[in-house]
């Protein structure tokens, strides 16, 4: 087994998330996520895996009934105690269904992170950022002649890569992906998986997936969550060949989930 980088970039300490008081969707999760790697989060639906990564960029605060306790540190900064707007610019997110902004062109979609909050850039800066972001998701050659077209004209897979480019344009420290291929066909899925493996040089990736083979194919580390708890967190090869918890083994062998 190759040696992997073990510099923690994100650390979760005793993280709890509850929708209704007393019931924990994420229960006491502590883990270190390592820089420059892909970490997958697996588990049956309802296990709290989406809730976990949405706690990291504080997406939950859009829904005021949700309570979070514990500690999240990204590059040494306490995410629960800085403004969510800043948090979300350090931790980018890609969603289940591609959601390019339909009122914006492809060009503006890539720059949305700057446009939305009113940052002015020079034409040159913008052109460069758009080109480099689209190149890093392999979309440049496909769309460079139609940058002023609406993002919604692209295929599902292209839209999702546009959304990844949009997140990358902000140069985040970490990219959170919530089942990013579940709405895509196998070919588009394949393309995105290859892309992620390339992208991990630029950005640390945490990807929630219910697709075990996807986790096995692309991730360096894997988490297995069950009923809100982090059951097992280990090197992906170890997890898949020699899981230490019985529940992990049962899930991976298809006994439930």
């Amino acid at each position: 087994m190759e040696n992997l980088n073990k510099t923690p970039i994100l650390s979760l300490k005793k993280l709890c998330v509850s929708y209704t008081p007393g019931k924990f969707a994420v229960n006491n999760v502590s883990a270190d996520i390592y820089e420059g790697l892909i970490t997958s989060v697996m588990g049956p639906s309802g296990c709290g895996k989406s809730t976990l990564i949405r706690a990291i960029n504080r997406m939950h605060e859009l829904y005021p009934d949700i309570r979070i306790s514990g500690n999240i540190e990204l590059k040494g900064r306490d995410l629960l105690h800085i403004n969510p707007s800043e948090v979300r610019r350090m931790a980018g997110m890609v969603f289940q269904r591609p959601n390019p902004f339909p009122t914006m062109s492809i060009y503006d979609n890539v720059l949305a992170g700057y446009k939305l909050i009113g940052i002015k850039q020079s034409r040159h800066e913008k052109d460069e950022l758009v080109e480099s972001s689209l190149k890093s998701v392999g979309l440049w050659d496909e769309v460079k002649d139609g940058l002023s077209k609406r993002g919604s004209f692209l295929s599902g897979g292209q839209q999702q890569r546009l959304c990844i480019a949009r997140a990358l344009a902000l140069k985040p420290d970490i990219l959170l992906m919530d089942e990013p291929t579940s709405a895509l066909d196998p070919i588009a899925t394949n393309l995105i998986e290859e892309l992620l493996v390339k992208l991990k040089k630029e950005v640390t990736i945490v990807i929630v997936t219910h697709n075990m083979t996807q986790a096995a194919r692309i991730s360096d580390y894997s988490m297995f969550m069950y009923l809100g708890e982090l059951v097992e967190y280990d090197r992906t090869e170890i997890m898949f060949t020699n899981p230490s918890d019985k529940r992990t083994e049962e899930y991976l062998t298809g006994k439930f989930g």
């Binding site: 707007s85 997110m93 959601n99 939305l116 909050i117």
Partner: peptide, 26 residues
């Protein structure tokens, strides 16, 4: 769609910015 709003929030926009740039144009 909620997904559009979440997309904008995930880029660090405030609610006012989401309303102005996403909800209102849409």
């Amino acid at each position: 769609p909620q997904e559009l709003k979440e997309g904008a929030y995930s880029l660090g926009a405030t609610r006012a910015e989401v309303i102005r740039n996403i909800i209102f144009p849409t």
